[in-house]
Nucleic acid binder design. Structure first.
Lengths: 97, 97
DNA sequence: TTTATTCTCCTATTTTAATAGGATTATATG
DNA sequence: CATATAATCCTATTAAAATAGGAGAATAAA
């Protein structure tokens, strides 16, 4: 009789350009692990509203919080000079089949 | 007789874990393009101090600002589930020779 | 359809980010 | 070494993030 945490899709595009994309990834990772917003927020020591904002793609969230939450929930980030971007995006895409 | 913008190295580790790493990448990209802190800050419409904070790895900088500056200066980011992290890191590393 | 639970809003408060301007420090170059 | 210039470090002000707590809306599942 209980509503469960609803799984969402991880973004297919490997390039991270916007806050929305990071938010979607974080939400996907959180729901995949079955944690509620409140549980996850407690686990990373932030307010549930802040985590909600991050998942909603609000650009106002602090960079440190965003990186910490991403890592804690299982979202990995990568960095490269823009010149390598296309090649890397292709590599990741291919590696997924 | 003038001091020029000093080039710095881009982080070798493709994985983005900390604010410091993003800061180092941004600084590397900025200096590579020969822009001063003030010029670059003006170009992306933020205060020079904020850009300085970002490059110094301060976690307090806003996520939206960080992503916007990274993109504008030529730093590309990628995102993936943690399960793919090692494989992707290896791919990027190999692609660089 | 009902219901337990999750998520999203809302308000108020406190903390802190972002800014502007300028002073100081550091250092690449001549 | 001398010095022009970039980066850092101040101070003060304004704007906004982060928080806590709870009310309301949405919705999986029985």
């Amino acid at each position: 009789m209980a509503r469960r945490v609803v799984p969402t899709a991880f973004p297919t595009n490997p390039q991270l350009r916007t806050c929305d994309e990071l938010g979607a990834a974080v939400r996907s990772a959180r729901t995949a692990s079955g944690l509620t917003l409140e549980e996850a927020a407690l686990a990373v020591s932030i307010a549930k509203q802040t985590l909600g904002d991050l998942e909603a793609g609000k650009p106002t969230v602090g960079l440190g919080i965003a990186l910490r939450v991403a890592q804690a929930l299982g979202v990995s980030l990568f960095i490269a000079p823009a010149g390598e971007a296309d090649q890397i995006a292709r590599l990741i895409h291919e590696a997924r089949g």
